[in-house]
Design a protein around this nucleic acid. Structure first.
Lengths: 159, 159
DNA sequence: CACAATCTTGACAAAAAAATAATGTTTTGA
DNA sequence: TCAAAACATTATTTTTTTGTCAAGATTGTG
């Protein structure tokens, strides 16, 4: 179970915009440089996020991207759902092996686990807004664990 | 965030073996048929699971696969870690964009969220054994939610 | 012992995802 | 008005993930 490239980079681009002051915006080359991705890739991601209503843009010189809503009102579960194209709702159609429909269509012992995991993740993400990701790693870590009620004994560090 | 094909099919194959009585085993064609996947694919998955120590096999006529340990002693988090190749530990090296290292190596605001999500999932999976997946969908669903302490108002159903 | 059933393993092909390229449209300002 | 800067959209290429194939190795059976 892992985060896709689209989720990772899309979220990171949004955090960049969440860092801006009212009235400011970022161009594609600026976003691309700040995240270490290509301008073309940034363009595609922002196009997606624009279509989904998370960001707005203005064209022409002095143009750029900015959040369509206050960062404090954008929850991570909404973002992930768009960037991941709501993968749960098509799960059973996606793993049918060589057949047309999954052999476990009737009564499936692992489906509750898949659904349950997604519920858990969705639930965790639905408690976090974009604005809560703008601080330092340490502060975000503390926020996350406070909200989720998990306690850790070691310091967060590079993986 | 989604389950990979390897995780899905690998887990399903293990559940098939968990259904067996002591002394029984399943051949690759049998596993393949029961899961609706090709024999070749089943072979690859079982090879992986064998290497990881979850199953044992005997060759020749009357050969086949069986669990290396009692199903009640095999936890889902161990299985997923093998089938997913422990993706968390290489996360930061995997999303470096066009650069050699991630721009957020020093202080990263979203890393705690990624790590935290994996902790949550890992924690949920570490409470479930293979033997708990052998029942009906309804019973597995009840088990899952009882263990995780989550309550749902709607019935589980096909996605 | 020979043969058939079975697992093992590495190479290869197909499909999906990700990234890039190309082309077009809009806006600003000299 | 025209050129430059910027976004918008679709097509193409590249990379990664999945799945398949084929040749080899092992074991049981008659």
């Amino acid at each position: 179970m892992k985060i896709s490239a689209q989720e990772e980079y899309g979220l990171r681009c949004l955090v960049q915009l969440a860092n801006l002051q009212e009235g400011e915006s970022l161009t594609l080359p600026q976003i691309a440089e700040r995240e270490g991705i290509s301008t073309a890739n940034a363009g595609k991601l922002m196009w997606l996020l624009n279509k989904a209503g998370f960001v707005n843009s203005t064209r022409g010189t002095k143009g750029g991207y900015f959040l369509a809503r206050p960062a404090g009102e954008i929850y991570l579960n909404e973002i992930i759902k768009v960037l991941d194209e709501d993968v749960l709702s098509s799960h059973c159609d996606g793993y049918t092996g060589v057949l047309d429909t999954c052999v476990h269509t009737g009564d499936c012992g692992i489906r509750p686990v898949i659904v349950g995991l997604h519920e858990i993740v969705e639930n965790a993400l639905s408690r976090i807004t974009l604005s809560q990701l703008v601080g330092s790693e340490k502060s975000v870590d503390a926020m996350f664990h406070q909200i989720q009620g998990i306690h850790r004994t070691i310091e967060p560090q590079r993986l």
